[in-house]
Amino acid sequence: MSYQPPPPGYQPPPPGYYGAPPPDHPQAATVLILGILSLVLCQFLGPVAWVMGRRARDEIDAAQGTVGGRGMVNAGYICGIVATCLLVLGLLFLVVGIVAGVVGSFGS
C-alpha cells in the first residue's frame, strides 16, 4: 500500500485531539425531553425529570469521562427542578384559593 496525499482542503486535527467524544448516557435524551415537556405541557413530569436527571448525572460523573451527555442531562435536570417548583406553587395557590372560598362561604 502506498502513501496517499491528503485531499485538497484537508486540515489536520487540532493539537490535543484524542478521537471521537464518548457516547452519550442512554437516558440523556430522555431526561432532556422529560424536562422540556414538564415545562411546556405537564408539570407532573418535573419530579420524574428531576430524579432521572440526578441519577444520570451521578452515573456520568462516576464514569470518569467514558460517558458523555452531561449537558443534555443537566438541561433536563434543571427544567425538572423549575417545573417542580411551578407545580408546587400552582398547588399552593389552588389550596389557598379553595381555603379562601370555603372561609368566604362561611362568612355569608
Rank of each mutant, 00 (worst) to 15 (best):
Y3T: 13
Q4G: 07
P5G: 08
P8N: 06
G9P: 05
Y10P: 00
Q11G: 14
Q11A: 15
P13V: 04
P13G: 03
P15E: 06
G16L: 03
G19H: 03
P21H: 02
P22H: 03
P22Y: 05
P23G: 08
H25A: 00
P26V: 00
A28S: 04
A29Q: 11
A29D: 06
A29G: 06
T30N: 04
T30G: 06
T30Q: 08
V31T: 04
L32I: 08
I33P: 07
I33F: 12
L34T: 10
L37H: 13
L37F: 13
C42T: 15
Q43W: 00
F44P: 11
G46N: 01
G46K: 03
G46C: 05
V48M: 02
A49R: 00
A49S: 04
A49L: 02
V51N: 09
R54I: 08
A56D: 04
E59P: 00
E59W: 01
I60R: 06
D61F: 09
A62E: 08
A62K: 09
Q64D: 09
G65T: 11
V67R: 00
V67T: 04
V67N: 00
V67K: 03
G68S: 07
R70P: 01
R70S: 10
M72S: 02
G76D: 01
Y77Q: 07
Y77C: 06
C79F: 09
C79K: 02
G80S: 03
T84V: 09
T84G: 00
T84Y: 02
L86E: 14
V88T: 11
V88L: 15
G90L: 06
L92M: 15
F93N: 14
L94K: 14
V95W: 10
V95I: 15
V96R: 11
G97H: 05
G97W: 12
I98N: 14
I98F: 15
I98H: 13
I98A: 15
V99L: 13
A100R: 15
A100F: 12
V103Y: 02
V103P: 08
V103S: 11
S105W: 13
S105I: 05
G107H: 15
G107P: 10
S108A: 13
